[in-house]
Amino acid sequence: MMNKKTKGFILSIAAIGVLAGCSANADSDELPDKITLDYAYYSPTSLVLKEQGLVEEALADEGVEVEWVLSQGSNKALEFLNSRSVDFGSTAGAAALIAKSNGSPIESVYLYAKPEWTALVAAEGSDIQSVEDLAGKKVAATLGTDPYIFLLRALEEAGLSSEDVEIVNLQHPDGANALSSGQVDAWAGLDPHMARAELDTGAELFYRNADFNTYGTLNVRSDFAEDYPELVETVIEQYEIAREWTIENPDEAAAILSEEADMNIEVAKASVARNDFSNPVIGSEHTEALIAAGEVLRNEEVIDADADVESLVDELLNPSFTESLGSE
Protein backbone atom coordinates (compact mmCIF):
# COMPACT_ATOMS: atom_id res chain seq x y z
CA MET A 1 0.00 0.00 0.00
CA MET A 2 1.12 3.57 -0.71
CA ASN A 3 1.83 6.07 2.03
CA LYS A 4 -0.18 9.33 1.96
CA LYS A 5 2.61 11.39 0.42
CA THR A 6 3.05 8.94 -2.43
CA LYS A 7 -0.69 8.76 -3.05
CA GLY A 8 -0.97 12.55 -3.15
CA PHE A 9 1.83 12.76 -5.68
CA ILE A 10 0.27 10.15 -7.94
CA LEU A 11 -3.14 11.86 -7.81
CA SER A 12 -1.59 15.20 -8.78
CA ILE A 13 0.17 13.62 -11.75
CA ALA A 14 -3.10 11.95 -12.75
CA ALA A 15 -4.84 15.32 -12.73
CA ILE A 16 -2.12 16.88 -14.85
CA GLY A 17 -2.38 14.00 -17.32
CA VAL A 18 -6.13 14.50 -17.69
CA LEU A 19 -5.73 18.24 -18.25
CA ALA A 20 -3.04 17.65 -20.84
CA GLY A 21 -5.26 15.15 -22.63
CA CYS A 22 -7.99 17.79 -22.91
CA SER A 23 -5.71 20.33 -24.61
CA ALA A 24 -6.36 21.11 -28.25
CA ASN A 25 -4.09 19.70 -30.93
CA ALA A 26 -1.69 21.98 -32.69
CA ASP A 27 -2.50 23.23 -36.20
CA SER A 28 -0.69 20.76 -38.45
CA ASP A 29 -1.10 22.78 -41.70
CA GLU A 30 2.30 24.39 -41.17
CA LEU A 31 5.32 24.02 -38.94
CA PRO A 32 5.22 25.76 -35.54
CA ASP A 33 7.19 28.95 -35.01
CA LYS A 34 9.09 27.32 -32.14
CA ILE A 35 9.80 23.92 -30.65
CA THR A 36 11.01 23.38 -27.09
CA LEU A 37 13.35 20.60 -26.00
CA ASP A 38 14.53 19.72 -22.54
CA TYR A 39 18.09 19.00 -21.54
CA ALA A 40 19.11 17.07 -18.45
CA TYR A 41 22.29 16.28 -16.58
CA TYR A 42 21.21 12.62 -16.57
CA SER A 43 21.15 12.68 -20.40
CA PRO A 44 24.65 13.55 -21.66
CA THR A 45 23.52 13.37 -25.28
CA SER A 46 20.96 16.13 -24.68
CA LEU A 47 23.79 18.33 -23.40
CA VAL A 48 25.86 17.63 -26.51
CA LEU A 49 22.83 18.37 -28.68
CA LYS A 50 22.31 21.71 -26.97
CA GLU A 51 25.99 22.65 -26.82
CA GLN A 52 26.58 22.02 -30.53
CA GLY A 53 23.40 23.71 -31.73
CA LEU A 54 22.50 20.73 -33.91
CA VAL A 55 18.73 21.15 -33.86
CA GLU A 56 19.01 24.90 -34.45
CA GLU A 57 21.17 24.29 -37.49
CA ALA A 58 18.85 21.59 -38.87
CA LEU A 59 15.78 23.84 -38.58
CA ALA A 60 17.36 27.14 -39.62
CA ASP A 61 16.03 27.01 -43.18
CA GLU A 62 12.54 26.17 -41.88
CA GLY A 63 12.43 29.28 -39.69
CA VAL A 64 11.61 27.22 -36.59
CA GLU A 65 13.02 28.64 -33.35
CA VAL A 66 14.49 26.23 -30.80
CA GLU A 67 14.14 26.76 -27.06
CA TRP A 68 15.74 24.70 -24.25
CA VAL A 69 14.43 23.94 -20.75
CA LEU A 70 16.36 22.18 -17.97
CA SER A 71 14.73 19.06 -16.50
CA GLN A 72 16.00 18.24 -12.99
CA GLY A 73 14.40 14.78 -13.08
CA SER A 74 11.94 12.60 -14.98
CA ASN A 75 9.11 14.03 -12.90
CA LYS A 76 9.94 17.55 -14.05
CA ALA A 77 10.27 16.48 -17.70
CA LEU A 78 6.82 14.89 -17.49
CA GLU A 79 5.34 17.98 -15.86
CA PHE A 80 6.77 20.05 -18.71
CA LEU A 81 5.31 17.69 -21.33
CA ASN A 82 1.90 17.65 -19.66
CA SER A 83 1.78 21.43 -19.36
CA ARG A 84 3.02 21.86 -22.95
CA SER A 85 6.11 23.67 -21.69
CA VAL A 86 8.24 21.33 -23.80
CA ASP A 87 7.61 19.28 -26.93
CA PHE A 88 10.41 16.77 -26.20
CA GLY A 89 11.13 15.49 -22.69
CA SER A 90 13.87 13.18 -21.37
CA THR A 91 12.79 10.58 -18.81
CA ALA A 92 13.36 7.10 -17.54
CA GLY A 93 11.10 4.61 -19.29
CA ALA A 94 9.30 3.52 -16.12
CA ALA A 95 8.59 7.14 -15.12
CA ALA A 96 6.96 7.69 -18.51
CA LEU A 97 4.91 4.54 -17.90
CA ILE A 98 3.52 5.96 -14.64
CA ALA A 99 2.49 9.12 -16.47
CA LYS A 100 0.92 7.09 -19.29
CA SER A 101 -1.09 5.07 -16.78
CA ASN A 102 -2.49 8.33 -15.43
CA GLY A 103 -3.67 9.53 -18.83
CA SER A 104 -0.68 11.56 -19.96
CA PRO A 105 -0.86 11.68 -23.79
CA ILE A 106 2.81 10.93 -24.47
CA GLU A 107 4.85 8.50 -26.53
CA SER A 108 8.43 7.29 -26.14
CA VAL A 109 10.04 7.65 -29.58
CA TYR A 110 13.80 7.24 -29.03
CA LEU A 111 16.33 5.79 -26.57
CA TYR A 112 19.07 8.22 -25.58
CA ALA A 113 20.92 5.71 -23.36
CA LYS A 114 20.88 2.45 -21.48
CA PRO A 115 22.14 3.77 -18.16
CA GLU A 116 23.13 2.46 -14.81
CA TRP A 117 22.24 5.82 -13.42
CA THR A 118 20.66 4.82 -10.13
CA ALA A 119 21.62 2.77 -7.07
CA LEU A 120 20.85 2.81 -3.36
CA VAL A 121 23.35 4.97 -1.52
CA ALA A 122 24.43 5.27 2.11
CA ALA A 123 26.80 7.72 3.74
CA GLU A 124 30.41 6.77 4.33
CA GLY A 125 30.68 4.50 7.38
CA SER A 126 26.94 3.82 7.55
CA ASP A 127 25.65 0.64 9.17
CA ILE A 128 23.36 0.15 6.17
CA GLN A 129 24.94 -2.55 4.04
CA SER A 130 21.93 -4.19 2.37
CA VAL A 131 18.38 -3.46 1.28
CA GLU A 132 17.09 -5.40 4.29
CA ASP A 133 18.83 -2.85 6.52
CA LEU A 134 16.47 -0.15 5.25
CA ALA A 135 13.52 -1.43 7.31
CA GLY A 136 12.33 1.43 9.52
CA LYS A 137 14.76 3.93 7.93
CA LYS A 138 14.33 7.23 6.11
CA VAL A 139 15.14 6.99 2.40
CA ALA A 140 15.26 10.02 0.10
CA ALA A 141 13.85 9.55 -3.40
CA THR A 142 12.22 11.68 -6.07
CA LEU A 143 8.72 10.28 -6.51
CA GLY A 144 7.85 9.22 -10.05
CA THR A 145 11.44 8.85 -11.23
CA ASP A 146 13.65 5.85 -11.99
CA PRO A 147 15.48 5.98 -8.62
CA TYR A 148 12.12 5.83 -6.85
CA ILE A 149 11.05 2.87 -9.00
CA PHE A 150 14.46 1.27 -8.47
CA LEU A 151 13.90 1.58 -4.71
CA LEU A 152 10.49 -0.09 -4.95
CA ARG A 153 11.89 -2.98 -6.99
CA ALA A 154 14.83 -3.44 -4.61
CA LEU A 155 12.48 -3.46 -1.61
CA GLU A 156 10.22 -6.04 -3.25
CA GLU A 157 13.19 -8.26 -4.07
CA ALA A 158 14.23 -8.11 -0.41
CA GLY A 159 10.74 -9.01 0.82
CA LEU A 160 9.91 -5.46 1.89
CA SER A 161 7.61 -2.73 0.57
CA SER A 162 7.29 1.04 0.68
CA GLU A 163 5.36 0.63 3.95
CA ASP A 164 8.51 -0.71 5.63
CA VAL A 165 10.48 2.51 5.07
CA GLU A 166 9.82 6.24 5.26
CA ILE A 167 10.24 7.66 1.76
CA VAL A 168 11.22 11.33 1.85
CA ASN A 169 10.29 13.04 -1.42
CA LEU A 170 13.21 15.25 -2.49
CA GLN A 171 14.56 16.28 -5.87
CA HIS A 172 17.74 14.41 -6.77
CA PRO A 173 20.34 17.00 -5.68
CA ASP A 174 18.43 17.67 -2.46
CA GLY A 175 18.41 13.94 -1.72
CA ALA A 176 22.18 13.85 -2.06
CA ASN A 177 22.48 16.80 0.33
CA ALA A 178 20.08 15.22 2.82
CA LEU A 179 22.19 12.06 2.85
CA SER A 180 25.46 13.90 3.42
CA SER A 181 23.93 16.00 6.22
CA GLY A 182 22.43 12.97 7.98
CA GLN A 183 18.80 14.00 7.47
CA VAL A 184 18.06 10.65 5.83
CA ASP A 185 19.60 7.21 6.28
CA ALA A 186 19.82 6.34 2.60
CA TRP A 187 19.14 7.80 -0.81
CA ALA A 188 17.90 6.39 -4.11
CA GLY A 189 20.56 8.18 -6.09
CA LEU A 190 20.81 9.46 -9.65
CA ASP A 191 23.86 10.39 -11.66
CA PRO A 192 25.61 12.75 -11.91
CA HIS A 193 24.67 13.63 -8.31
CA MET A 194 25.39 10.04 -7.26
CA ALA A 195 28.89 10.08 -8.78
CA ARG A 196 29.55 13.39 -7.04
CA ALA A 197 28.45 11.95 -3.69
CA GLU A 198 30.77 8.96 -4.21
CA LEU A 199 33.83 11.01 -5.09
CA ASP A 200 33.27 14.08 -2.91
CA THR A 201 31.80 12.60 0.30
CA GLY A 202 32.77 8.93 0.16
CA ALA A 203 29.14 7.81 -0.15
CA GLU A 204 28.75 4.09 -0.77
CA LEU A 205 26.56 2.43 -3.40
CA PHE A 206 25.41 -0.46 -1.21
CA TYR A 207 22.93 -1.89 -3.71
CA ARG A 208 23.41 -1.91 -7.48
CA ASN A 209 21.40 -3.76 -10.09
CA ALA A 210 21.78 -2.58 -13.68
CA ASP A 211 18.71 -4.57 -14.74
CA PHE A 212 16.49 -2.47 -12.47
CA ASN A 213 17.48 0.73 -14.29
CA THR A 214 14.95 1.41 -17.05
CA TYR A 215 16.11 2.94 -20.29
CA GLY A 216 16.46 6.66 -20.95
CA THR A 217 13.63 7.59 -23.32
CA LEU A 218 12.91 10.70 -25.35
CA ASN A 219 9.19 11.42 -25.20
CA VAL A 220 6.83 13.62 -27.18
CA ARG A 221 3.14 14.35 -26.84
CA SER A 222 1.07 12.11 -29.08
CA ASP A 223 -0.62 15.03 -30.83
CA PHE A 224 2.77 16.61 -31.61
CA ALA A 225 4.07 13.35 -33.09
CA GLU A 226 0.91 13.06 -35.20
CA ASP A 227 0.92 16.68 -36.37
CA TYR A 228 4.65 17.11 -36.91
CA PRO A 229 6.24 13.71 -37.64
CA GLU A 230 8.90 15.39 -39.78
CA LEU A 231 10.01 17.47 -36.79
CA VAL A 232 10.23 14.36 -34.61
CA GLU A 233 12.35 12.72 -37.31
CA THR A 234 14.59 15.78 -37.55
CA VAL A 235 15.17 15.93 -33.79
CA ILE A 236 15.95 12.21 -33.67
CA GLU A 237 18.40 12.61 -36.58
CA GLN A 238 20.23 15.27 -34.58
CA TYR A 239 20.13 13.11 -31.45
CA GLU A 240 21.82 10.42 -33.53
CA ILE A 241 24.63 12.80 -34.45
CA ALA A 242 25.02 13.72 -30.76
CA ARG A 243 24.91 10.07 -29.68
CA GLU A 244 27.61 8.99 -32.14
CA TRP A 245 29.76 11.98 -31.21
CA THR A 246 29.40 11.12 -27.51
CA ILE A 247 30.51 7.54 -28.15
CA GLU A 248 33.58 8.77 -30.04
CA ASN A 249 34.37 11.62 -27.63
CA PRO A 250 33.48 10.52 -24.07
CA ASP A 251 35.97 12.87 -22.39
CA GLU A 252 34.66 15.85 -24.35
CA ALA A 253 31.08 14.85 -23.50
CA ALA A 254 32.09 14.69 -19.84
CA ALA A 255 33.62 18.16 -20.15
CA ILE A 256 30.29 19.50 -21.43
CA LEU A 257 28.48 17.86 -18.51
CA SER A 258 31.07 19.23 -16.10
CA GLU A 259 30.55 22.78 -17.35
CA GLU A 260 26.76 22.62 -17.59
CA ALA A 261 26.30 21.05 -14.15
CA ASP A 262 29.21 22.92 -12.53
CA MET A 263 30.84 19.73 -11.32
CA ASN A 264 34.30 18.21 -11.04
CA ILE A 265 35.45 16.69 -14.33
CA GLU A 266 36.17 13.32 -12.67
CA VAL A 267 32.59 13.20 -11.40
CA ALA A 268 31.32 13.95 -14.89
CA LYS A 269 33.52 11.23 -16.41
CA ALA A 270 32.23 8.67 -13.92
CA SER A 271 28.65 9.64 -14.72
CA VAL A 272 29.09 9.43 -18.49
CA ALA A 273 30.88 6.09 -18.17
CA ARG A 274 27.81 4.53 -16.52
CA ASN A 275 25.84 5.02 -19.75
CA ASP A 276 25.67 2.65 -22.71
CA PHE A 277 24.91 4.74 -25.81
CA SER A 278 25.17 1.89 -28.32
CA ASN A 279 21.51 1.23 -29.17
CA PRO A 280 18.86 3.92 -29.79
CA VAL A 281 16.33 1.50 -31.29
CA ILE A 282 13.19 0.65 -29.31
CA GLY A 283 12.82 -3.13 -29.26
CA SER A 284 11.49 -6.15 -27.40
CA GLU A 285 14.03 -5.90 -24.57
CA HIS A 286 12.69 -2.45 -23.70
CA THR A 287 9.13 -3.71 -23.75
CA GLU A 288 10.07 -6.53 -21.37
CA ALA A 289 11.95 -4.19 -19.02
CA LEU A 290 9.01 -1.81 -18.78
CA ILE A 291 6.50 -4.61 -18.21
CA ALA A 292 8.64 -5.91 -15.33
CA ALA A 293 8.81 -2.44 -13.79
CA GLY A 294 5.09 -1.93 -14.37
CA GLU A 295 4.20 -5.09 -12.46
CA VAL A 296 6.07 -3.80 -9.41
CA LEU A 297 4.39 -0.41 -9.73
CA ARG A 298 1.00 -2.11 -9.89
CA ASN A 299 1.79 -4.20 -6.80
CA GLU A 300 2.70 -0.98 -4.97
CA GLU A 301 -0.52 0.67 -6.20
CA VAL A 302 1.45 3.38 -7.99
CA ILE A 303 -0.32 2.09 -11.10
CA ASP A 304 -3.96 1.09 -10.75
CA ALA A 305 -4.39 -2.51 -9.60
CA ASP A 306 -6.67 -3.23 -12.57
CA ALA A 307 -4.34 -1.70 -15.15
CA ASP A 308 -3.28 -3.78 -18.16
CA VAL A 309 0.46 -3.18 -17.95
CA GLU A 310 1.27 -4.80 -21.29
CA SER A 311 -1.26 -2.62 -23.09
CA LEU A 312 0.06 0.51 -21.39
CA VAL A 313 3.61 -0.32 -22.45
CA ASP A 314 2.43 -0.98 -25.99
CA GLU A 315 0.65 2.39 -26.07
CA LEU A 316 3.69 4.19 -24.65
CA LEU A 317 6.43 2.81 -26.88
CA ASN A 318 6.35 4.08 -30.46
CA PRO A 319 9.18 2.33 -32.34
CA SER A 320 8.25 3.73 -35.75
CA PHE A 321 10.73 6.61 -35.56
CA THR A 322 13.70 4.33 -34.77
CA GLU A 323 12.91 1.44 -37.09
CA SER A 324 15.31 2.77 -39.73
CA LEU A 325 18.15 3.25 -37.24
CA GLY A 326 20.80 0.58 -36.82
CA SER A 327 22.42 -0.33 -33.50
CA GLU A 328 26.18 -0.38 -33.26
Results as ranks from 00 to 15, higher is better:
M1I: 04
N3M: 03
K4T: 14
K5D: 15
A15I: 06
A15V: 00
V18M: 11
L19A: 09
S23N: 09
E30A: 14
P32K: 06
D38K: 00
T45C: 03
V48S: 05
G53P: 14
E56C: 03
V66R: 08
S71E: 11
Q72W: 14
S74K: 12
S74M: 06
N75K: 05
D87M: 05
F88S: 02
A92W: 01
A95D: 10
A99P: 04
S101G: 15
S104W: 02
E107F: 06
L111K: 09
I128P: 01
I128H: 04
S130F: 11
S130N: 08
V131Q: 04
V131E: 01
D133S: 14
A141Q: 05
L143Y: 15
D146G: 07
D146W: 03
P147N: 06
A158S: 15
A158M: 03
D164M: 03
V168D: 06
D174E: 14
G175K: 02
L179G: 02
D185Q: 12
D185P: 08
W187H: 08
D191V: 10
A203H: 05
N209A: 04
F212W: 13
F212S: 02
L231M: 05
V232Q: 07
T234L: 03
E237T: 09
E244S: 02
E248A: 15
D251K: 15
A254D: 08
A270Q: 15
R274E: 15
N275I: 01
S278I: 10
V296I: 07
L297E: 02
N299I: 07
N299A: 15
V302L: 05
V302T: 13
A305K: 08
L312F: 07
L312I: 10
V313K: 05
L317D: 02
L317N: 00
P319S: 12
T322W: 08
S324T: 10
G326F: 04
G326C: 00
